[in-house]
Design a protein around this nucleic acid. Structure first.
Length: 275
DNA sequence: ACGGATGTTCGCGC
DNA sequence: CGCGCGAACATCCG
């Protein structure tokens, strides 16, 4: 569950669950989730640690605990942080969990294990390449259209590939890029350098709106219901809707491969690529 | 049963 | 160095 809005949702939930609490016991089976440390080091490092704070940068989560102990978390494709109330059975695929002094458990669930956890000293968290090399974060730094336009001038890559490059904009993934390009009426395969300044303006507005809207439908509960329940309606505008009518003009939405990822788009609204 | 899925990284080749 | 491509990672869902 991993694009900027979902990771922001996770950060907010983690604060509610962990603010003012400390870890009584940390548990984790050995798995490939851990990078640069093993599960037993995770258990030893966090046992007895007081929660300090959690921050989001792009799709990354950074935790600080007492004693200068930090934790880096990336959710990969299917990672999520969950709250496991006292006495409740843990869901499948819990790769790591923290038992708090109030009896609640905070767990990291990740079926496919594309995510990762790493112990990092707090004062090195922001120096990690995954964080240091990020472009502006739409929620934290905001997007400057003039800057983005200039940045996009420097590459011939498809605009959708550039948008998903974390060094260009932090946190945009396949869903936000797909919906934002639709909203801004820009074909996903257009060379990034071909975008006019007004198009970049529209794109920035569309990215901000797409993120705000996704945050809104997520609400502020403990779980993102649209992703949790199998069969729940797809809340996105064109992502995952190829073959269905365009919500704006009714033309059948198409899909194409851009940079190895599937993109849904409207062949009418998002026109043919111009140079 | 088969294909595809919200992400990143690495190796290879041009 | 920039870039494209395919593979790999492991599981679930329609």
């Amino acid at each position: 569950m991993p694009e900027l809005p979902e990771v922001e949702f996770a950060a907010r939930a983690l604060r509610r669950w962990m603010d003012g609490h400390h870890v009584v016991e940390a548990e984790a089976p050995e798995s490939r989730i851990f990078r640069g440390c093993d599960a037993s080091a995770f258990e030893r490092a966090l046992r007895g640690a007081a929660f300090g704070w959690v921050e989001r940068r792009g799709k990354n989560l950074l935790f600080a605990f007492s004693g200068g102990q930090g934790l880096f978390s990336h959710l990969g494709m299917t990672g999520k942080w969950v709250r496991i109330p006292k006495g409740q059975m843990a869901p499948p695929h819990v790769r790591a969990s923290l038992l708090l002094e109030n009896g609640e458990r905070v767990g990291y669930v990740d079926p496919r294990m594309f995510g990762r956890l790493a112990l990092v000293p707090v004062d090195e968290l922001f120096d990690r390449p995954e964080v240091r090399d990020l472009g502006p974060d739409p929620l934290i730094d905001g997007l400057d259209p003039a800057w983005l336009h200039e940045r996009l001038q420097r590459t011939r890559r498809a605009i959708k590939v550039a948008l998903m490059d974390q060094a260009v904009i932090a946190g945009v993934g396949n869903i936000q890029a797909t919906d934002a390009l639709f909203e801004a009426r820009i074909h996903p395969a257009r060379p990034a350098s071909s975008l006019a300044r007004e198009e970049v303006d529209a794109l920035v507005r569309a990215i901000d709106a797409s993120i705000a809207r996704t945050l809104e439908v997520q609400g502020d509960g403990d779980e993102i219901t649209y992703m949790e329940e199998a069969g729940a309606a797809n809340p996105f505008v064109v992502y995952g809707r190829a073959g269905l009518p365009c919500p704006r003009c009714g033309t059948t939405l198409e899909k194409m491969d851009v940079g190895g990822r599937t993109s849904a788009f409207c062949p009418t609204c998002q026109g043919v690529q111009r140079e």
